[in-house]
Design a binder for these strands. Structure first.
Length: 269
DNA sequence: AAGCTTCCCAACCGCTCTACG
DNA sequence: GCGTAGAGCGGTTGGGAAGCT
């Protein structure tokens, strides 16, 4: 894959927590050279780690633009919504949360949101009992979603394969150009404005800082590596769940939230 | 203060996917 | 078509911090 074959003979890879010196070595190397082929990074950077370990350390900890600290309410809601839509697709969810890594989101989910959602479902089932008698409106909103899903399937002429094959996944610059994302992505269409102002500033600074770094260029990004029909079906499922669980009162027209997936589902940077 | 339990997070492991020869 | 290697993803684990008794 464009990497120089490494000489055989397995070096002993260090495991466990990274020391500040190791972090510095890795950071300095990548900022100067770019990561290129990960398996060669530890050798060239003078680290006794596996390429995989270096990659993870960079993505989850050293990469510029990472947001640390507590998740905001909005981020929390975004995660919950996207988890309903996508399931445990942490990397896809993280694409909608600038500065957050899939690992971070995954950890947050397991330690906190999982419980929260369980509670919400419990609550929701009570609401369902309450509204079960007037289900006609629920059916209406479900049907309208179903219609949209069908329309979406027809109107979207791109495919998952096309999306994935033509757009290599982005590693380093994932957090770039998020203003564009915020203005057009599907989550926002869903009415979940994220309010990433602070983060945008951070990204801008990072863009200035990093603009001359050799990362191979030609990066593109497919924000959602799933086709629009898939997203629509997921949304349909999610919307139905929300109605079922009593998060949305029957009669509330979900479609008025105006998510035009055919336009917003995929974003190229 | 000491011991125990729970929680959180960084890192690892194993699997799948993709590119290439 | 097959084998191999690299990259990426999701699940799991281990260790330390925090909280409780």
């Amino acid at each position: 894959m464009g990497c120089q074959p490494l000489e055989k003979g397995k070096p002993k890879h260090k495991k466990g927590l990274w020391s500040p010196e190791e972090d510095n070595k890795l950071r300095n190397y990548i900022l100067k050279q770019g990561h290129g082929c990960w398996s060669s990074v530890p050798i060239k950077a003078g680290l006794q780690r596996s390429g995989k370990s270096c990659r993870l350390r960079w993505i989850n900890y050293l990469r510029p633009g990472l947001k640390r600290g507590k998740f905001t309410k909005q981020e929390e809601e975004t995660i919950l919504t996207l988890h309903h839509m996508l399931g445990n697709k942490w990397s896809q969810i993280s694409q909608h949360l600038p500065g957050r890594t899939d690992n971070e989101i995954k950890n947050y989910w397991h330690s906190y949101l999982k419980k929260k959602e369980a509670k919400a479902k419990e609550k929701g089932s009570h609401n369902l009992m309450k509204y079960a008698s007037s289900s006609s409106d629920t059916m209406d909103s479900s049907n309208s979603l179903q219609n949209l899903a069908t329309q979406g399937t027809q109107s979207c002429n791109f495919t998952k394969e096309a999306c994935q094959s033509s757009l290599p996944k982005l590693l380093f610059a994932e957090w770039l150009s998020l203003d564009q994302v915020n203005s057009a992505n599907s989550v926002d269409s869903f009415g979940l404005r994220n309010g990433f102002d602070q983060n945008s500033t951070l990204q801008e600074a990072a863009i200035h800082d990093m603009s001359d770094i050799p990362f191979g260029g030609g990066y593109h990004r497919c924000l959602a590596n799933i086709s629009a029909p898939e997203i629509l079906n997921s949304e349909l499922k999610y919307a139905n769940q929300m109605v079922e669980n009593g998060f949305i009162l029957p009669g509330v027209d979900l479609m008025s939230s105006n998510f035009s997936m055919s336009n917003d589902a995929i974003m190229y940077i």
